[in-house]
Design a protein around this nucleic acid. Structure first.
Lengths: 190, 190
DNA sequence: AGTATAGGTGAACGAGCGTTCACCAGTCAA
DNA sequence: TTGACTGGTGAACGCTCGTTCACCTATACT
């Protein structure tokens, strides 16, 4: 554990708590040095490593690999050794899952009608409004004054809402069918 | 759309891009007013709504409902109308999914051995290292020089690794069994 | 007509910012 | 032993920060 990466972790956890970067003086206190210039040089080093950046006004902003969790390989291909972890990429969940924050909503799944698609009751789904639903998408649809989540299929001009559970029957909407949102992601927490 | 919430959105998207709050002068440019004091009063109003906060040094930090996506109700209980959306809570994916960033890793699932638990091939799992595995947890385990993801069960002192797919057989480790990590969440993107 | 009130202007204040300077103590290779 | 380098101190610089002041509109409500 180098001193540099130790200081970086302190800065990282400061940002996690406050959602802003510490000033140079604050970093001096965090890292235990008593001169702003020592910090300044350290920040320059961190900028070189792309861990921290500066915007056009000189203010500090988190660098590319600042936020998020480390991304590893495949689970069946083996779990990396501690040495390999150093090289791994990082990824923020928010960035990974959300394209358009304004139109994205999270909602909780009730019922088991999509269990065959790996969506269990109690899961959270991230849905995006105003996006065009394509054949095979999972959608939130209004059907006969109620809302359901189903696969959307188009068969020669007609729309079919397919559950992913043999217990339930496909829905052939008679008249009104409003697609409220398209399911973009599923999230389950244990 | 009030002017206040319009300005707030500009600030929000500034933060999204730069990962820091704009200064009062920057906000003045963003919102089109020409006096810092006008911005100051606006920020006070936003602080009252908990959209923006100040830390102990007076610097601005994002408020509680600043980041993340809006959280809605149950999907089968109905999709809220636009009016209801105003009242909804918000939630950051990072905060929701990650407790201990240092020990959390993301890895991609290969194979269908946990399909019964709603974990499909290609899904991402968030795993946490160094956490004690309890009975019923899904774990990443080293078994006979390989790594797998399985349910962990304890039966009178013995450990069984259970797949969630009838195609595969439970694993009764003979000797060495190292639990590398516990699966905390599953994420699937469409 | 009168008058609160919400929201804006423009100037001012001290404090703290990011940055730079000159200098110093160790470490390591030549 | 010398000399270059790395990482630190402490003081200084101009600039921008957050904040406050007095004053200025409009609109809304008696």
């Amino acid at each position: 554990m180098t001193k540099l990466s130790n200081s970086f972790k302190k800065i990282q956890s400061f940002y996690d708590q406050k959602k802003r970067m510490p000033s140079y003086s604050e970093m001096a206190k965090l890292t235990g040095v008593s001169s702003k210039n020592a910090v300044y040089k350290m920040v320059e080093r961190l900028c070189g490593l792309d861990l921290i950046s500066k915007d056009e006004t000189g203010r500090l902003i988190p660098g590319k690999s600042f936020q998020g969790v480390r991304l590893l390989g495949y689970v069946e291909a083996g779990f990396p050794s501690p040495a390999e972890e150093e090289l791994s990429d990082t990824m923020s969940m928010d960035e990974y899952l959300i394209d358009n924050k304004e139109a994205t909503f999270m909602l909780k799944v009730k019922g088991d009608s999509m269990i065959g698609a790996g969506i269990m009751p109690g899961d959270m789904v991230l849905v995006e409004r105003g996006r065009e639903a394509r054949d095979g998408d999972i959608v939130i649809a209004e059907i006969d004054h109620g809302w359901t989540m189903k696969y959307l299929h188009r068969r020669n001009g007609k729309i079919i809402l397919m559950p992913a559970n043999p217990k339930y029957l496909p829905i052939l909407p008679k008249e009104e069918l409003k697609i409220a949102a398209v399911v973009k992601a599923v999230v389950r927490k244990y």
